[in-house]
Design a protein around this nucleic acid. Structure first.
Lengths: 260, 260
DNA sequence: ATTAATTATATTGGATCCAATTTGCAATAT
DNA sequence: ATATTGCAAATTGGATCCAATATAATTAAT
């Protein structure tokens, strides 16, 4: 139980650099120093996820992947027993999800998966086209060598993969790869939160109407613009890509969705 | 205790429309119907704030007004006794604030007011100029008659008021008034969250360097563009206004702030 | 005297318990 | 039959308690 004893034991086992978990919580990197004495150095501490973090991530994933239907109630007891915790971490997770807009709660009634109207979907896509085109333009200027290769990899996999469940994930990774060199962390986090709100509809539309070939073609255009170092073209194509996706998605939703 | 008894009692007291609180919670509007019989109608139900909502709002206000300094620890016990609650609602409020980026938490160490670097401030202002200019352009097209008068009121008060504490509030209200007719709720909520992150720095700069005359002049320009129905000019001026404010603020921060 | 080890205290994370509220259902009255 | 009332189950909001961890203070060791 004592963390120091734990470390000593590990150090006697392996006298080089090791990674261990102290008392089951903080992850520490431990090294012997140059004289090989048993001094320890905490090189890197990674925050271990709390129960509420785990619940939050799991629910978030389930919602954005569309595994939980819009409006579905999220019972605290149910979720708590699912994760073998009490309701306290569940409630914290739910209140965070509400803050992000993925969940809607009513006092004494509980939390529900927050569906969004077609109008809101349209608005969000307009927002995306505005922000993402700006970000990709900024990214192209300082794009790193490995990034283009990485993006091309995602592009290739995206065009080849048959599993519809992976399309959403790959699509997102492709775009994010091209955005991340912009070094605009605030913009990136906004983009991520925004995508969370519409990802499940996008996934549904991609799989049910086979929007992959079109998306794929447009991805190639964006990728080539980045490879050419043309920020303006990358921005324009990104804008078109998103606004085009909006139209397809709206049409899809109006057909497949009973008005809420 | 019984809500029905409560309502009956109120109805015998006053036979016209009344507002009452049932069992201390939901607020209901109650009316007699046309025959003046004692039937009740729940006209409007307003969700009563939970303890966690109250704590959330109060902490949020304290942070964005700058009453709590960056990095200041937010002790659960302290806050709980301040609001006469247990730590549970406090923790929910803190996790929501963290999700919004106003608070940073470290496991087993607690929550702290999340300060942001000068780079982040700059990035956020660039983001604001992008989004807010777009929104004001959309708003100008469908601006309602009362809105212009309302905005002009805020402009007048802003130019006259002497209390530095009110400047931040009035500045925000002025802009929000001009944005709200855009009917873009998603954009508006993003703008609000974004402003929350930088509002306290803006307030500090406004009061300490007397940036009011400049802001005021620019507000007038924006207002006139809206009155003229010129979406493009309103957007351009908004962009200039925000980017100009960014430069002043950055300079201010670099002078008055020890590097974190 | 300085460094390491130990203890004590403060603080957070989580579990369990209780109170307030909603909701569905049965019973009653009109 | 229909509307109203009363009651019970389900569910959430919050309080209190305990465990895990971090930090400060103290003691021991060299």
């Amino acid at each position: 139980m004592d963390p120091i004893c734990n470390i000593k034991k590990c150090l006697y086992d392996e006298l080089q650099q090791i990674t261990l978990i102290v008392a089951g919580h903080n992850k520490c990197r431990v090294q012997t120093d140059k004289e090989n004495s048993l001094k320890l150095k905490v090189v890197n501490i990674a925050k271990m996820a709390s129960a509420s973090d785990i619940v939050f991530d799991a629910l978030r994933q389930a919602i954005i992947k569309g595994e939980l239907a819009d409006g579905e109630p999220l019972r605290q007891d149910e979720i708590a027993s699912l994760f073998n915790t009490s309701r306290i971490p569940v409630r914290e997770a739910l209140s965070r999800l509400e803050q992000q807009g993925l969940v809607r709660t009513e006092r004494y009634k509980g939390a529900f998966v927050a569906g969004i109207s077609t109008d809101e979907v349209a608005e969000i896509f307009n927002f995306r086209s505005l922000v993402e085109s700006t970000v990709i333009a900024a990214a192209v200027m300082k794009i790193k060598p490995g990034t283009l290769a990485e993006a091309r990899d995602y592009y290739e996999i995206f065009s080849k993969t048959q599993d519809p469940m992976e399309w959403g994930e790959l699509n997102r990774k492709f775009h994010y790869t091209l955005y991340k060199d912009s070094e605009l962390p605030f913009h990136l986090s906004i983009i991520n939160n925004t995508l969370d709100r519409v990802d499940r509809y996008l996934r549904a539309q991609l799989t049910m109407t086979d929007g992959v070939p079109k998306a794929n073609k447009e991805h190639l255009g964006i990728l080539q613009a980045c490879e050419d170092g043309s920020a303006e073209r990358a921005a324009d194509l990104t804008q078109e890509h998103i606004l085009g996706a909006k139209d397809v998605l709206i049409e899809f939703l109006e057909k497949h969705r009973r008005p809420a």
